[in-house]
Nucleic acid binder design. Structure first.
Lengths: 139, 139
DNA sequence: CTGCTTGCAAAGGCTTTGCAGAACA
DNA sequence: TGTTCTGCAAAGCCTTTGCAAGCAG
């Protein structure tokens, strides 16, 4: 069996295991996303997925990214007020973001240390912690 | 002299000290913002400022908030993909953000501890660090 | 078959911009 | 008087939504 077919199968398995019906569009999007750890905007996903003849519509890209995030396959990041970024790696970690180049990279878990406050506002609990180190180019 | 007049004078001084020509609209906006530490969206500033007869236009609100942020009077926060928040306190600190209520609050500097990575991506330097603890209501 | 998905285009929310008139220095 | 600022409306960008046609189970 070819590698491509194997990859497709494992993507389908991944979707099913998260309660997502694997349509051809979703499989195509998932294959692009989960190929490697990366941080992508909806537009970038659109470009990756629409290289060939069979196009996936913008609406479906957005709906699918939203669905994947909701089902825990992706993490939506709030690093840039102008557009959403989706992280194909969902384990807990943080980010560098270079605003000049729009490039994001991960901060390895053991390169950072955060001691959170013990006192939270009345009646609340932590949902998640997002830390972003904004960078600029030197000189 | 009245307190209101004194407050107006100090706002004008503040603007001038940051190289901003104090027009009546800017003074009005600044007076609302710097009354106390707070986190406001453009819309909220609009509401605060337009209680009385003399209205400030939406364009001017946006332009002024952008100008204040550029001149270092305000800090623009990226906590919510849907809208920008402006923090009237610019010293370095972090935030709680309750997504259900849209409420933000400060995390006191000594309630938190962050050890940043020593290794930054090639050719970059840190511009700022933004950490947000996203909250949900308990139960 | 019956419901879930897709694609298109239109609508929506926040923010920026072009430009003419008003205010400032 | 020359420059800067304001307000209005229009435009822009990213994202969501309504709906008819298509596909999955």
């Amino acid at each position: 069996m070819t590698d491509a077919k194997n990859q497709k199968r494992s993507v389908i398995r991944l979707l099913r295991s998260h309660g997502i019906t694997p349509t051809s569009q979703r499989v195509k999007i998932a294959a692009a996303l989960f190929e490697k750890p990366q941080h992508l905007t909806a537009d970038q996903v659109m470009l990756m997925v629409n290289q060939d003849r069979k196009k996936v519509s913008k609406a479906t890209i957005y709906n699918t990214l939203g669905l994947f995030a909701e089902k825990g396959l992706l993490k939506e990041l709030t690093v840039d007020a102008n557009r959403a970024y989706y992280d194909s790696t969902t384990h807990n970690h943080h980010h560098f973001f270079n605003q000049e180049t729009q490039e994001m990279s991960d901060i390895a878990a053991d390169d950072i240390e955060i001691k959170l406050p013990e006192q939270l506002p009345e009646g609340t609990e932590i949902e998640r912690v997002e830390m972003v180190v904004y960078l600029r180019n030197k000189d």
